[in-house]
């Protein structure tokens, strides 16, 4: 009985849906506030992300004639579920719901499901904008995913473990891996921006070019779920980087540990916000160029060096 209760608690409250929802809203607010401040604006009040979510949930849900209704309803749910599942394996403040050797690979796999669902959503919702956006999102997926995976494999190889919590725990005894592998950390950040489709890599949903990309025809609850998926994905991605490169909570499951973890997460969030204010949106061919000519060779070099040092 208590076993069931703890599972339910982990799924719905911590570190499951409730906690992630709160984090997503808070991170979104901080992100918008920081970006606004850098641009000389004030930014939205704290309840704005919540208000946006409630507004979208209450709005009428329409799909164009010819769109695959079952798929369009299932895709946001599947991607949200995938992101929430991935969160179960990521330690938050040193505390983790589930862990086993190799959960990093599972998490990375689960985090790539929204990208594929996003592409399918564009393909199945009969608008030319979403078709173009969908093909762009697939091209973008191939550009960032390879360097991102190679960058994340660095900490795993160095620690000799594919379990996120064990990689994090090892760093608290030694040194943060971001200091050992600054290049890997940078590549992982760039990859994360691509994964989250944030500016300057918001190419698949470029507003001034293809309206809203694959999500053009979505509205109401489905759009709310899509937005929630993106925002929770941001939280999960940031937590993942904190654990892999910044040593997680450093001092295990204590109150200062949670605080330290939060500060590190905010640091990465800040870097994402600054990056989105710093650049113009790239073109998809420019991103593919950067991905394959710059990021992928760098990540490969980093990985080979890690294997050589770690193995030697």
């Amino acid at each position: 009985m208590t076993e069931w209760l703890s599972v339910l608690f982990a799924l719905l409250v911590f570190p499951g849906f409730g906690f992630l929802l709160a984090c997503a809203l808070a991170f979104q607010w901080i992100d918008r506030r920081v970006e606004a401040r850098l641009q000389g604006r004030v930014g939205p009040p704290w309840f704005q992300p919540l208000a946006d979510l409630i507004k979208l949930l209450a709005k009428e849900d329409v799909l164009p004639v010819g769109a695959n209704e079952i798929a369009c309803a299932a895709l946001p749910m599947v991607s949200l579920a995938a992101v929430l599942t991935a969160a179960l394996y990521i330690p938050v403040g040193g505390w983790v719901a589930r862990t086993f050797e190799g959960d990093l690979i599972v998490v990375l796999f689960l985090l790539s499901i929204p990208a594929l669902a996003y592409f399918l959503a564009g393909w199945l919702s009969v608008s030319v904008y979403s078709v173009v956006g969908g093909s762009r999102s697939l091209l973008q997926f191939f550009s960032y995913e390879v360097p991102f995976l190679m960058a994340l494999s660095g900490p795993a190889i160095l620690s000799g473990s594919w379990s996120i919590s064990r990689i994090a725990a090892q760093q608290s005894q030694a040194v943060w891996l971001a200091l050992v592998q600054p290049l890997g950390f940078l590549l992982a950040l760039v990859g994360l921006i691509g994964k989250l489709k944030r500016s300057p890599f918001d190419i698949p949903k470029a507003k001034s070019e293809i309206v809203a990309g694959p999500l053009t025809e979505f509205s109401g609850r489905k759009l709310a779920l899509w937005h929630l998926t993106m925002h929770i994905q941001m939280v999960v991605g940031i937590f993942l980087l904190v654990n892999l490169f910044l040593g997680g909570s450093d001092v295990g499951v204590t109150i200062p540990g949670v605080l330290i973890f939060g500060i590190k997460a905010l640091f990465i969030l800040l870097m994402l916000s600054v990056a989105s204010a710093l650049y113009a949106r790239l073109r998809i061919d420019q991103l593919a160029n950067i991905g394959w000519r710059v990021l992928a060779p760098l990540a490969l070099a980093q990985m080979l060096a890690t294997i050589w040092i770690g193995g030697g």
């Binding site: 641009q39 000389g40 204010a277 710093l278």
Partner: peptide, 20 residues
């Protein structure tokens, strides 16, 4: 590559121009 960073630093110490 990081052209606007000094500008951002300055923005931290200037008041936002938004009129409420």
């Amino acid at each position: 590559l990081l052209y606007l960073l000094p500008q951002f630093w300055r923005m931290l110490f200037t008041r936002p121009v938004t009129v409420r």
